[in-house]
């Protein structure tokens, strides 16, 4: 079995076709849609977790690519919404890599994304909910 999160980009020309239905029905792929949207130019963007036997998984990806769907590896990124952050500093006790850190003695909070290992512990630890995990395609 392979389980992988990917980003699918649907050009406007194919956005109305039932790809996920086909993946499930024809390729025995378990698809768990994490996020999906269609932009004003009618291009689709979907973050989906696909789980299937290796041969089905490969065939399913080939099917998508043949129909013009871009399949991109997924990168999770933690984003610090500075305007929502109230600079309390509690996250700095939870972050295991000091990606969230305080400048002392000013006690201001900063986020260094290079140090972040995307453990996601900060997401619910932050009382002001200023941290968010965004799924982005690696490009």
């Amino acid at each position: 079995m392979i389980k992988s999160k990917v980003v699918l980009r649907f050009p406007a020309s194919v956005v109305e076709q039932p790809f996920i239905y086909t993946l499930i029905k024809e390729y025995n792929i378990i698809a768990n849609i994490l996020k999906a949207n269609i932009n004003p130019r009618k291009e689709g963007n979907m973050v989906v977790e696909l789980k299937a036997a290796e041969s089905d998984f490969k065939a399913g990806i080939e099917f998508l690519q043949e129909r013009g769907v871009m399949v991109l590896p997924l990168e999770r990124q933690i984003v610090w919404w500075e305007d929502r952050c109230t600079q309390c500093g509690f996250c700095t006790a939870i972050c295991p890599t000091d990606a969230l850190w305080m400048e002392r003695p000013k006690m201001t909070v900063s986020f260094c994304s290079e140090k972040c290992i995307v453990c996601e512990q900060c997401l619910k630890a932050c009382p002001a909910r200023a941290m968010e995990a965004l799924y982005q395609a690696e490009e």
Partner: peptide, 11 residues
Amino acid sequence: VPTAPLSSYPK
């Protein structure tokens, strides 16, 4: 023991 505040000094 590492410390962290809940009250914001900068604010």
